[in-house]
Simulated assay, not measured.
Amino acid sequence: MSNRIKKLRSERKLTQKQFSDQINIPVTTLAQYERGEREPKLETWYKLANFFHVTIPYIQGVQRFRSVDEYAQESQVVRNIRNRAYASNDKTTEDFQEYALRSTELSIDANWDDLQKSYSRLLASLDFNDKMFSSWDTRQKLKLVQIVENFIMQSSFLTDQSDINSFLDSINYIIESKL
């Protein structure tokens, strides 16, 4: 997964030279950061995030939300979708599928480090290796973990075949959405 330094710099219509002068980083170092050839230190991530008024995980490319406020807004949207989905008592509705997809995304953003550890444990327990998923980006791998964890947690609450079918339909929807 690539960082968003170049994207954010381009949004501000700054050249590498202009930007490097403003944040006091050599232009060659900045170019390496943007190409992913070099990883900034934590204090540099902090400086970059402050400059662009975004979170460090956002500029690193591991989170979709520029700010904590955006994350809170999406959380509220997901809660509203969940409430609509469960109020309808029809677990095959688009609301239920959208809730499954969006809540998975939110969970990944909130639990990135734990999910990376779970991904390693999942591969080991299934006797898989990372090469099997080499074409997937990190976020897709973590969605796989989230889906499997959700399935395990919900499987004890699925009481009849229609519940199981609805849940499997939601899982298929998520996978077909390119994880």
Rank of each mutant, 00 (worst) to 15 (best):
S2C: 04
K6W: 02
K7D: 15
L8Q: 05
S10P: 06
R12Q: 14
R12M: 11
Q18P: 08
F19W: 02
S20C: 06
S20P: 02
I23A: 01
I23S: 01
P26N: 12
T28K: 13
T29N: 00
A31V: 02
Y33I: 00
Y33P: 01
R35F: 00
T44E: 08
F52L: 13
F52E: 06
H53R: 11
T55C: 01
T55K: 02
P57A: 10
Q60Y: 09
G61A: 02
E70Q: 09
Y71H: 13
Y71I: 04
E74P: 03
E74A: 13
V77P: 04
V78I: 15
V78H: 05
N80A: 09
I81M: 01
N83I: 06
Y86T: 05
A87M: 04
S88W: 04
T93Q: 01
T93P: 03
E94G: 12
F96N: 05
A100W: 12
T104W: 00
T104S: 14
D109V: 07
N111I: 01
L115D: 04
L115F: 10
Q116H: 13
S118F: 09
S118V: 02
L123N: 07
L123I: 09
L123W: 10
F133T: 09
F133C: 08
D137S: 10
R139T: 14
K141T: 05
L144K: 08
V145K: 11
N150Y: 09
F151E: 12
M153L: 11
S156Y: 08
F157H: 13
Q161N: 13
S166M: 11
F167R: 10
K178E: 15
